[in-house]
């Protein structure tokens, strides 16, 4: 996998196949980017479990927070990492110790660790680094264009409508 350039097909297949997500570093502070992302993913129909030892046992956006990946109530399709790159090797060990491995490990903007990525990929886990799933979902659904942002996509086909007003989905 070329981690400098992901194709839209690669990102799109991940965002349409994944149903359940654990967000490591989810914040209860509504001004934090992790809160933005969690709220957006919930709105798009993903099941999200926040992971944050400081918030363990409390709810964020109505979802019960776990202290660690080991304490997740069940398997998840994707682990989304909202922590500095330096924390990624430790988190990778935790992921590889999970009973059921996730299909995808996603690292947020500025988060990247190529050695960890190689370890995860060796176990068949797909990896995305230095990207934001909210931005990528917005880009591929084309919602992000409503904010004047360059989606870098062109299409003359029908956009996939989501629920309610002003909501698009990603075409499979």
């Amino acid at each position: 996998m070329d981690h400098d350039h992901y194709s839209d097909a690669y990102i799109g297949s991940i965002l349409t196949e994944v149903k359940t997500v654990a967000i490591i570093g989810a914040s209860a502070n509504e001004a934090r980017p992790s809160y933005f992302v969690m709220k957006y993913l919930l709105n798009k129909g993903f099941e999200v479990t926040p992971v944050n030892p400081g918030q363990a046992g409390k709810e964020i956006l109505g979802q019960m927070t776990c202290a660690s990946l080991a304490e997740l109530p069940g398997p998840v399709d994707m682990v989304d990492i909202f922590r500095a790159s330096a924390a990624v090797p430790g988190i990778t060990d935790e992921i590889l110790a999970m009973q059921t491995l996730p299909k995808v490990v996603w690292m947020q903007l500025t988060v990247r660790d190529d050695e960890s990525a190689a370890q995860l990929e060796e176990r068949g886990i797909r990896v995305v680094m230095d990207r934001c799933p909210k931005i990528e979902f917005g880009r591929l659904s084309h919602e992000i264009g409503w904010a004047g942002i360059n989606s870098k996509t062109l299409s003359s086909r029908k956009p996939q409508l989501g629920n309610g007003f002003q909501s698009f989905g990603i075409r499979k």
Binding site: K39, G138, E143, A147, G148, S151, Q166
Partner: peptide, 20 residues
Amino acid sequence: QAFGNIYTRIMNPTQAVLEE
């Protein structure tokens, strides 16, 4: 926290196509 239009002083769908 969500993408979308509120009020045309801030954004508008025709304007958004121009912007992108």
